[in-house]
Design a protein around this nucleic acid. Structure first.
Lengths: 224, 224, 224, 224
DNA sequence: GATGAATGAGGATTCATTCAT
DNA sequence: TATGAATGAATCCTCATTCAT
């Protein structure tokens, strides 16, 4: 039984607080959605908390009831985006996928990632944050690091023979390519053009990875 | 004889204005340098003209003697950077280079570009400007477009058989890879690590381009 | 029962907004009063929004919650003054007054006008605005024109035989005399001296108008 | 022989200073002219010293070599205007004119005044200065007072039987009428319309003054 | 909790005035 | 003296944040 569910009949006096929490959650979601929209439209720095409140059809005071300041909004937004992405995208790293040949692996990793970014364009907007100050930048680094780590795991699995420093460089590279490729994908009009861009992005990765993988195979599996 | 008087025979009336102009030019350079630093540190939106003036050890009024507003500073900075880059980097597109095999071509194009960006990190900072408003964005698009066009020319030269839409996609991709690769290069510590990152970036590009170039050779040069 | 709750039967949902509106109106009135004082003291151009806010014991931000800029303050002030004046002074132009002999008419028109200007010295201050820029000047012209038109109507009624161009000149003249006479009245110390100045102003007008009115009577009423 | 010209052969060492003074005077005149233009166009408060210097084709530094601050410019301008006006207009108050019948006196006083104001529209602009601060206002009062005194003298001459307080009121009134009438005259297009406005202004004054003058004649000169 | 008015520090920009040349 | 660059206080206005209701 999950902690959030309660058997009917238990402590009725908890219902109100619960409701409140539920309402609070809705408020927060609503505010984060508004923040996402405004960040997308204006960027973090130029986005004003008043604009976010207005977008959420809420007064500025209400916004500050849920977030201590503008930074916290971006931070929370980043966190939620990240865990949402993990949920939507995490199974790409399951052992099942780790056995896949690279082309399928790339599909299994990129397709949900692209899907996710199409639905949450703020994500990329926040990742690009060259304009983002202080703690947010750190937070971004955290996010960045966690994603890099995932890529690193894959690399370790598929290219165990490569020396770690080189593997790190490759992971950085792949991550950078994916990020900027994602931007191209989002910029392309939905439809066949976007599909073509997606294909192109995968092509870049596959061609980049093919030679080391071939090396790997030669080295590790002396053939049957 | 006062310092302001000159021996007859020289161009006397030009000296004073020239001094002034020289001083003005120096001021402008100093202000642009300060702006570059502040833009790098805070991003365009969060950079304040007062901060730029302070960084230039100058009063706000002085800044406004040379630039009508913050936008003009970024615009002029972009212009200067661009022409400086053209000067430093333009010969990469000379016919001599167009005959080069791809690896050398990539070196000829990327090396000066990397060099330039290491010396002028604002350039990348300004290119990323997702937070940049109005006319500056347009200006950036212009810069972006002009650089893309260069890449496009190269592509047309080396892959004439590829259909234009696909070539455009490839050019976008290459440009995106170079931009984000450049960021990795700048982020790497100077020395062997940076060199390794540079090599990796070139590797990505070469592996990406190798198959279409091979196709091209097969198609166009039926060989003896 | 909280203060915010009302007995059923009244219009409960209007109370809060109404309170707010009332507060807002008070603020606006307070700001306009402060603006009036500062405009009187320094003139429009030299009046600063910060000074107005300070005079109103309010922060600059608050001022800008109610007015988008300095111009809007002067415009609103002009509008309010004008309609207040129309309310206080409008009946001077009723048909009843139009039948009056000139001396009574002059009383009926000038007395409320003087009264009004004594209570709102900004009015004259704003009308003199040779320093006033842009839209405000236009607005002033509108106000000016509307007052001139009133005078013109009176003239047309009392001197129908005079040619229009001449009537227009006379109206301009009368308006100018009244404006500068009003300034003298305001400058005079309240009491008998002020009364004497008022009398003198009326005398100027009556003596100016007497001859054409006499002509008019001779021309139009051939007598019994 | 004018003061500024010197006979050849006299003290040569005085030539330079003299020249300098002459040059200085020219500079000052040039600056005051520029100031007049800018004050007319923008009003005192909105006129910037830089704009005045630019209008005079001079650097701001030069302006401050001749005037300690903006106020001093307006002050000096007022002074010069006043004495110029006295020169051009002073003979209106000569004993010869004092004997004239009122209509001719009015012509003798107003015509040069109007002429002067048409040539120096700043004069009126400065007189209206409701926006003018501090010492300038006082200075204006001085100017105002000196002109009022002139009118007062005339009144004393022509209406010796009227009680002084009333005469002062009448002088104020006349002065006010003339000032605002002058503004109408300047506003009218040159040509017959302007002439008509001038006539109207004189009419106002003559009608205003006729009754007391008639009284005066009855009272003082019973004569056969 | 919700509201939105209020705050005030801070940012862009101007301008009277000074100063090195 | 003339110049015009430099100054910095003062303007207008915005926005993150607080607070009375």
């Amino acid at each position: 039984m999950s902690e959030d569910e309660e058997t009917p009949g238990t402590a009725p006096e908890e219902t109100k607080p619960r409701r409140r929490q539920a309402r609070g959650e809705r408020r927060i979601a609503q505010l984060l959605q508004a923040a996402a929209d405004v960040f997308c439209a204006k960027g973090y720095t130029a986005a004003s908390t008043n604009a976010i409140a207005r977008e959420a059809s809420v007064s500025p005071g209400t916004l500050y009831q849920y977030f201590p300041n503008k930074e916290a909004i971006a931070l929370e937004l980043g966190d939620r985006l990240l865990s949402e992405m993990r949920a939507a995208h995490g199974q790409a790293f399951t052992p099942a996928n780790l056995g896949l040949p690279i082309p399928q692996l790339v599909d299994a990793v990129l397709d949900p990632l692209i899907e996710f970014n199409c639905q949450h364009p703020v994500f990329l907007a926040l990742m690009h944050g060259s304009e983002i100050p202080g703690r947010i930048a750190e937070e971004h680094d955290a996010l960045h690091a966690s994603m890099l780590a995932r890529v690193g795991e894959l690399m370790a699995h598929y290219l165990p023979g490569t020396e770690p420093a080189q593997r790190a460089r490759m992971a950085d590279m792949i991550f950078a390519i994916v990020k900027s490729g994602l931007a191209l994908v989002l910029a392309a009009p939905e439809g066949p053009e976007r599909e073509a861009v997606i294909t192109e992005l995968k092509t870049v990765l596959l061609r980049y990875l093919a030679p080391p993988l071939a090396d790997q195979r030669l080295t590790t599996t002396p053939s049957p």
